[in-house]
Design a protein around this nucleic acid. Structure first.
Lengths: 207, 207
DNA sequence: ATATAAACAGACCAGTTGGTATGTCAAATA
DNA sequence: TATTTGACATACCAACTGGTCTGTTTATAT
């Protein structure tokens, strides 16, 4: 904002928009509020984006999708034990959240619940994020089966979808109930379920 | 709508509003659309409700809460085997949904994700629904432990929360991915998890 | 140095939206 | 039958909202 830096301006718009969307949803987000947050004007905003919708699309593609890649896809691709890696990621994410953050939930889940039925562009983009996410888990589980850490009878593709769904469900219910206790209770069940996916031999080391 | 019937009119407003909200969310729901659906006018609508928000509150209290009572709390309170009852309810609900219905998700989850962070009135009402829901599951699991059908080492309160969260997560992910296959895959995992809660002796009869 | 195009600023606008004020009609009540 | 009240109908409005249009400033290429 000091000197002219279009990339930085564009990113500032997306960051401000994401914060608003995270709390109020895409429909509840107001262009005017982005201007207030960034100190920019309408001229600047509509120079970088054609309309409100394109801001939402860019957030999914450039921020949320990227986050999943960095926090999940990357670590899982380097992992020799997907179960432990998933538990680690969850605990790390959990540690970084205040009670206030919990109330806002996962922006990916928020957006998909709000927008996927009413805008196909949003839905396709969010579905793609979910696909990358589940694929990364499924592939890691598959590799784990080959190395013997994961039970041979688990079906990676199915379990991956279920794990992702449960995770989103947990975050969503905790968000509504505004309860850290509830979040930790559910996470505990999730952890137990994850450990069940390990081969009997390797459970000793894990717990 | 034929003759004057205030209760029927009020209910017609709520039903129409719920359909709109189910698809577009509460913020996306337009009062004007309710009028079009019901054939009523603003005068009628604002005679029965003080404002838009009160329509949303009434829907949670009178329709969604009631639905949970009928579909979950009732059956579970009569159940001798909560695991089988839950599986039955899920299969029944699943059978009644078309692909189009799946895209709209669960209205309770939709509303809680959208409204709980921005309106405390909504959040409290939805939390209460979740509480009744999880309590019913937890109590049924407890009773199952006493009769011996449920494993003694499961913690009813924790598992109940996790089950509810997973269920909502599954519906939510399937909604975004618009995939019946994915829904059934995840439901399959959920079913397996539920059956694990049964005592080893009674598994034979269940499967 | 100057032309050119990108990166903004700011006023303005048309459509939308929740909500209100006033009037009318039917049914219960006396 | 007269009257009062609840159940609507209709016109209207003020505020909001996404988006546009025109103008100005800054960087960059020639």
């Amino acid at each position: 904002m000091v000197s002219r830096n279009p990339n930085q301006t564009r990113r500032a718009i997306l960051d401000a928009a994401l914060e608003e969307i995270h709390l109020r949803g895409f429909q509840g987000m107001r262009v005017e509020h982005i201007l207030q947050r960034t100190g920019l004007t309408k001229g600047a905003l509509y120079h970088h984006f054609t309309n409100k919708m394109s801001i939402g699309y860019a957030i999914v593609d450039e921020i949320l999708g990227q986050d999943v890649m960095e926090r999940w896809v990357g670590p899982l691709s380097d992992s020799s034990n997907p179960v432990l890696t998933i538990i680690e990621i969850c605990e790390k994410e959990r540690a970084g959240r205040t009670a206030e953050e919990i109330e806002k939930g996962c922006p990916i889940n928020n957006l998909s619940q709000e927008m996927s039925p009413i805008d196909e562009g949003f839905r396709e983009r969010l579905e793609q994020v979910y696909r990358q996410w589940t694929s990364a888990i499924a592939e890691a589980l598959s590799r784990g089966q080959k190395t013997g850490v994961i039970r041979a009878d688990v079906e990676p593709a199915k379990i991956a979808k279920f794990l992702l769904a449960s995770l989103q469900g947990i975050i969503g219910v905790a968000k509504c109930c505004k309860s850290e206790q509830m979040l930790d209770d559910m996470a505990d069940c999730m952890r137990s379920y994850l450990l069940q996916l390990l081969n009997a031999d390797s459970v000793q080391r894990a717990v």
